[in-house]
Structure formats: C-alpha cells, structure tokens
Amino acid sequence: MSKPHRIWVVDDDAEMRQLLQDYLGEQGYEVRCMADGRQLLARLDHQRPDLVVLDLMMPGVDGLTALRRLRDDGDDLPVLMLTAKGEAVDRIIGLEQGADDYLAKPFLPRELAARIEAVLRRRGSGPAGSPLMAGGSFWIGETQLDLETRTLQRHGTPITITTGEFALLTAFVQHPHRPLSRERLIELSRGPDCDTDSRSMDVQVSRVRKLIEPDPARPRYLQTVWGYGYVFVPDGQTRKG
C-alpha cells in the first residue's frame, strides 16, 4: 500500500486549519497544520511535505514572503496559495512568485481537495489531458527540457522549475507551431475541470519565458498571438501572421 500524500496547511485562522485538517484527513491525506510562514520555513529544515496549502495574508512571516524564500532558494515544493475573494492582485503576485495554483476564499473543502489532487497529478504524471512522451527530451535554444526526469537545464546546470511551470512548458513543446488560447493552455496544463482565471495564464507564461528565453522581454520561443493566446516556436523564428 502506498503512503498517503503529506499535506501541510499554513493559515493563521485556527478554525480554517481544523476544518482542512479534518476534511483532508478524511480524504486520505496525512495533514499537518502551522499558523504562519515562520513555522513552515523552520519545519522544512527537518521534514518535507508533498504539497503546501499556504494562506497569503498572515501576521509575521506571511505566505508571500515564505513562498518567495522557497523559490529564491531554488525549492520547487508544490504550493497552492489561498487568497481573499476578488483580490486579483494577490493572485497575480503569488503566481509571479511561483505558486503552482491558487484558490480564493471562501471555498468548499472539496474544491480545495480537487485542486490539491490536480497539482499532485501534474507533479507525478504530467499535464492532465496531455500525456508525457516517455523518454522525451526537447532543446529550446540552449535549454533542455527532459520529460522523463522532469528537469530543465542549461549547459548542464539545473534550472529550478515548479510543477505548474513544468506542466505549462510541456503543453507548449507537445504542440509546436500551434496557436493555443489561454483557455486551452489551462486545460492542457491543469486539467479540463480547473476553474482558473484565464488571465492568470499570462503570469505563468511570463515566468516560463524567464526560464527559457535569452531575453524574456523579446520572446523568441513562446510568442504572443495577439487577441488569442500563445504559440511555441521551436526554432525561435519570428512567426508571421
């Protein structure tokens, strides 16, 4: 029997922590709760979960600060952030800092469980709706994406890539020269049932460009299709039309 996935819930709201611990525990997860980002970072020195549910707004070391420290240290630990309802700026900032997904409060516990499952699925078996090609390895300029080992490197040096970034880049390389709408990219990288603001995809594309483009401000490989979405151009040539 496989071990249950370890989920850490970080939220300063004690009632929310208890609710999620009870519900996620009933779903078969091994759940541990913390009250702020400081506790999270301290515990990561000794243990490691499979995913962190991280509230953005907390006293002390807030979720955004904790997330930034993780990514600055090259840690690709999957993070699902919780934001206040309607706070689009918070969602954008969180995604820019490397969150794998987000969920706005208030939410139904089963909705959170579905998001957790989707992120873990992407980490374990690649983008929903777009199976990985076994042993596939792609060169994007001087950057190599390996689908089997789920790694990205340049000149032999590993590049930290989050679960969400890997899923999105995989969706692109498996559909070269094909313009993809934001909605289609969400479906390919997060699954058909993911209810995500399509504009959040712009943030994710921007992050992936920083990983693979020589000049992210003038992208060669992930080019914008104005009024529609994006297209992956493997040879880096300017797309006409």
Rank of each mutant, 00 (worst) to 15 (best):
S2A: 07
K3Q: 13
P4K: 01
H5R: 13
H5P: 00
R6V: 09
W8N: 02
W8C: 10
W8V: 07
V10Y: 07
D12N: 12
D13Y: 02
A14L: 10
M16F: 04
R17M: 08
Q18Y: 09
Q21P: 01
G28V: 08
R32V: 08
M34G: 05
G37R: 04
R38C: 06
A42C: 02
R43V: 02
L44A: 02
L44I: 07
H46V: 03
Q47A: 08
R48K: 15
R48N: 07
L51W: 04
L54Q: 04
D55E: 03
D55W: 09
P59F: 11
G60N: 10
G63I: 14
L67Y: 03
R69A: 12
L70Q: 03
L70T: 01
D73F: 06
D75E: 14
P78A: 06
P78H: 05
P78Y: 11
T83R: 09
T83A: 14
A84S: 08
A88N: 02
V89S: 04
L95Q: 00
A104N: 03
K105G: 06
K105D: 04
L108E: 12
P109S: 07
P109R: 06
R115G: 03
R122K: 10
R123S: 14
P127K: 06
P127D: 05
P127W: 09
P127Q: 05
G129I: 05
S130D: 10
P131M: 04
L132H: 02
L132K: 10
G136V: 06
G136T: 01
F138Y: 15
W139Y: 09
Q144T: 03
Q144S: 04
R154I: 08
H155L: 13
G156E: 07
T157W: 13
T160K: 00
I161W: 13
E165P: 09
L168V: 02
L169C: 05
F172A: 03
V173W: 02
H177Q: 11
L180S: 01
S181H: 08
R182D: 00
R182E: 01
L185V: 04
I186T: 06
S189R: 01
G191N: 11
C194H: 13
C194G: 07
T196K: 13
V203I: 11
V205K: 08
V205D: 00
R207Y: 08
V208E: 03
R209L: 12
R209P: 10
K210I: 01
K210E: 15
L211E: 02
E213C: 12
E213D: 07
P214R: 07
L222Q: 12
L222H: 12
T224A: 15
V225R: 14
G227H: 10
G229K: 11
G229T: 10
Q237I: 08
Q237T: 11
G241Q: 03
